[in-house]
Amino acid sequence: MNALIKMLIFPGFGFLFIAALAFDWIDRRMIARFHGRVGPPWYQPLADFIKLLAKEDVVAEGTHGLAAAALPIVSLTAVMTASLYIPVGGIVGASFEGDLIVVLFLLALPALAYFLAGWISAGVYSVLGGHRSLLQYFSCEVPFLMAVTCPAILAGSWSINEISNFQAQTAWSALTQPLGFILALIGLIGKLKRDPLDIPKAKSEVVAGPLTDFSGRKLALWHLTMNMQTVLGIFLLVNLFFGGSRFFNRVPALPVFGLKSVAILLMLSTASALYARLRIDQLMDLGWRILAPLALIQILATLWIGG
């Protein structure tokens, strides 16, 4: 019974669903305020979701129908499974030594599904977007993984919860490894395909990337997956780089965790309002020539300090 509640309500699907919509709203609202606009009302993400669910579901001719139906479900499942292993404010769904690696693997699955979504489509924009998403995945995932490894090395554990608790006794990894945090943040933007690294779905170039031919329920699921991925990515960074609640011993852990997550979300929103989109070759340059070496330096520094 307890496990069912954990899976369906907290920190499983129900909580994640609400958090995904809320984060989407905060993000859109923040960007709108940066632009000098008002932005959408709070129910807009939910309304969009419901509207998409109700819309006609068209499968374009030449598209593999079964795969098109399966891919959003697969990626949503992967993301929701990952959510069980990411502690929310110290509350753990499930935890074991090495769950960080499982989570990273599960969060990589949607990227693969995203590429396949482009591959099975008949449209040229989808195929091009799929290729781009794979290229982007390679250049962003490597620095992200390397940066995420650093707190684990320092804590001497591969369990997210233990890394988080370790920081409660010492200090935030973001303070001891600022470079690693920035790299992880950039990597996360690339993984989530957010502005300014929304290269696979750049509107003025490839229309909507791999999702160009999707509509109705499938598109709604894709959007939900994306939003949940954003939430989980942020939760992961909070646990790894702002773990514990050492500075706020008197306040309950959950609101503190929420505040930290929103702070990271605001960093992402600011980045998307700040920069123009990079070209894919420029991103490869950035990923392999700048981010990856810097991540290597961070790992070496961490090994040297934490030994």
Partner: peptide
């Protein structure tokens, strides 16, 4: 932009 009134 955050502290000025939106144009909408």
């Amino acid at each position: 932009a955050l502290v000025t009134r939106p144009e909408t």
